[in-house]
Design a protein around this nucleic acid. Sequence first.
DNA 1: ATATAATGCGAGCATTCACTCGCTTTTCCT
DNA 2: AGGAAAAGCGAGTGAATGCTCGCATTATAT
Lengths: 207, 207
Amino acid sequence: MARKPPTKPRKNASQERSRATVDALVEATARILVKEGFEKASTNRIAEIAGVSVGSLYQYFPSKEALVAAVIDRHNEEIMGIVRSARIEVADMPIDKAVRKLVTVAIEAHRIDPKLHRVLAEQIPRTGQLKDVEAFNREVHALVRTYLESRRNEMRKIDPALATFICVSAIEAVAHNTVLNHAEMLTEKTVRTLVDETTRMVVGYLR
Amino acid sequence: MARKPPTKPRKNASQERSRATVDALVEATARILVKEGFEKASTNRIAEIAGVSVGSLYQYFPSKEALVAAVIDRHNEEIMGIVRSARIEVADMPIDKAVRKLVTVAIEAHRIDPKLHRVLAEQIPRTGQLKDVEAFNREVHALVRTYLESRRNEMRKIDPALATFICVSAIEAVAHNTVLNHAEMLTEKTVRTLVDETTRMVVGYLR
DNA sequence: ATATAATGCGAGCATTCACTCGCTTTTCCT
DNA sequence: AGGAAAAGCGAGTGAATGCTCGCATTATAT
């Protein structure tokens, strides 16, 4: 992500300034993606919005793709933060409570920055970044699978990997479609109903 | 889709020739998308592969986007054909049989042209075409909802629109992820297990 | 046969855009 | 203070690409 130094930096140098530049670039990219869409996100424009020159941009990001990847990563990292802590919180809960929590978290996670989420889902051609996204996906699966394995006694006999695949697919799809279709017009009540129903489906399936 | 004629055609003229051209263009677009990806699909290249000149291309398609949209439409139409006939077939079945059929069909539909499906899902920036895809989506929902409404007596008390949303989301997600992750390495047995499990989840949820 | 419309052609235009490079400014270290 | 490295600059380059336009070829009608 950072530049390849021609020689090693003597100390930490003025890292402050450059980190601010990097942040500004990523932030500008995200803003353009949300407000004007992927097509308008040219490197020149990103640099302009970031208040930085194109030259500086290329000092920190080897390509436009890398910039978009950074935005995706930042967003995914935010989501994973929530998911990871939910996984911990859920560790000692019985299945019905746990599933409810996970479903809630899934919807919450998708609601972090719905506009950005939408752009990432609809407009970004996944080329190369696929590996990163897949990694996050695998982590989610692993997190859920270990939980299910720890609660085998509350469940019917079923392959944990398979159960994970089905449950995660279903939960994610509901969360995803909810956010995409109903955008930001989502009442508390609607969300609760959705959570109730999805929980019911998943719990009913597991045992 | 067709050109705007400067004057009305006298008869049906040599429509044969032009229809062949249009077909060749759409087919070439699909082939390039599958074999070389979206980025390589320039209008010049599409024309070249179709054995047609760029000029002719623009006689029938006002833009590159229109060409891609045609490919998407053709693919969606193929899928909808299967789904529509499944809906009819399912009309008089009880819920468990019907759901099983619909789940099977969902996976089958996604398996029609997995490579194309993957490219469309991963690489095509949805800009403008959104409306079309949304229309297909709405039709699927309508098809399922009318079925559920006709079987209300076999189900617990539940809002049909909500039930449709949850079931369709879940089924589509399983089908989609199955095809995307496991590509074309899918044994009959695996598919049957997947169908069994998904059916179990959905039927259990509905009643 | 001749006129008219339909279809097809493809070199080239105009534009966009990712990216480079030579240079200046800022920061750090001694 | 002075020198070196880090950070920043932005006009310019080269390549790609969507699309046009004037002309050529083929089909249809009279």
